[in-house]
């Protein structure tokens, strides 16, 4: 693993005697895209906002780029933040917004270059309030880069966006990684986390309940792959039931759990021998979303 740029140990945040963040440890490697996942109220935004110096921790130690969290001034200069549901000034243009926040850091910034990096050249002089949701999020990301930070925090950057706008945001995040930035992401979308992240942590009720690369997490916690016999109907169900007790009928489809793919051949042979007719057989490996639902007991996929 690469050098650690964020190290969190035993982080606790208490509201009304409840630990909203409950003894959390995190390690974020330099240059990685790190995703913090969790259902609403899991404590992920509270955790991120403590790292962003927006809130104070109740207990625990945090070091960001080797700086203790108490050195807020130095940390603020080294990180870039896009808060949750951030909207810049309604009547300032894209360029003016970027220059405003650059002015807060007193840093010289090439606004046009930043605008180009999120591909907003054509909207340079358009007022923020007149942009669509996806473009607003890209402005937010550009603003988070004004001080050329080493770590960029993006709190739910694609929530509420349509699929194509979401893809554009993903592309911007990939570009950040390419430039060597460390990206700390919280998201509602498992697909997004799986596609973009080097490391994911899933939080539930204030605790981190699993961590690792998306592949590791899935293989550790995921169920086995499943085969779906489309259009097999009751014939397929009857023919397999004796050999595979776990088989289930979903509408006209039949789902079977595979034992690491080894029994796929056996299934096809059984169907063939019984001359069962079906449309197709698909094999689906478990996704991060399956793991998420299994671990948190919640459906999460489509956003809020």
């Amino acid at each position: 693993m690469s050098e650690t740029v964020i190290e969190v140990r035993d982080l606790v945040k208490t509201y009304d005697r409840v630990n909203v963040v409950d003894h959390v440890d995190l390690d974020v490697g330099a240059g990685d895209v790190f995703s913090l996942l969790g259902p609403n109220g899991a404590g992920k935004t509270t955790t991120v906002e403590i790292l962003e110096c927006i809130r104070d921790a109740s207990a625990g130690s945090i070091s960001i780029l080797g700086l203790d969290i108490s050195r807020k001034k130095d940390i603020k200069n080294a990180i870039g933040v896009m808060p949750q549901s951030f909207n810049s000034f309604e009547r300032l243009t894209v360029r003016e917004s970027i220059l405003y926040f650059a002015g807060m850091f007193k840093c010289k910034v090439d606004a046009d270059e930043l605008i180009a990096s999120v591909r907003l050249e054509e909207k340079r002089d358009v007022q923020f309030g007149k942009l669509s949701g996806g473009l607003k999020q890209r402005v937010g990301i550009a603003i988070s880069l004004v001080n050329d930070p080493d770590i960029v925090f993006l709190d739910e950057p694609s929530t509420g966006l349509d699929p194509s706008a979401r893809r554009d945001v993903w592309e911007v995040i990939r570009q950040l990684k390419k430039k060597g930035k460390t990206v700390f992401l919280t998201t509602h979308y498992m697909e997004e986390a799986e596609l973009l992240s080097d490391e994911v942590n899933i939080m539930n009720r204030g605790k981190v309940i699993c961590s690792g690369s998306p592949l590791q997490v899935v293989s550790q916690h995921g169920a086995s792959s499943t085969a779906l016999v489309r259009g097999g109907g009751e014939y397929a169900l009857n023919c397999m039931q004796s050999r595979f007790p776990g088989v289930i009928l979903e509408g006209d489809d039949v789902r079977v759990t595979l034992d690491n793919g080894k029994n796929l051949v056996e299934i096809i042979r059984m169907l063939d021998d019984s001359q069962v007719r079906y449309e197709e057989i698909t094999v689906k490996r478990p996704s991060l979303e399956d793991v998420f639902i299994k671990l948190t007991g919640e459906s999460y996929g489509g956003g809020e």
């Binding site: 110096c53 927006i54 603020k76 933040v81 808060p83 549901s85 951030f86 810049s88 807060m104 603003i143």
Partner: peptide
């Protein structure tokens, strides 16, 4: 009220102002 709902206060908090 506007700055709070837009997250501008939260954002400013992460800058040196």
């Amino acid at each position: 009220c506007d700055y709070r709902s837009r997250g501008i206060f939260r954002k400013l908090k992460t800058t040196p102002i």
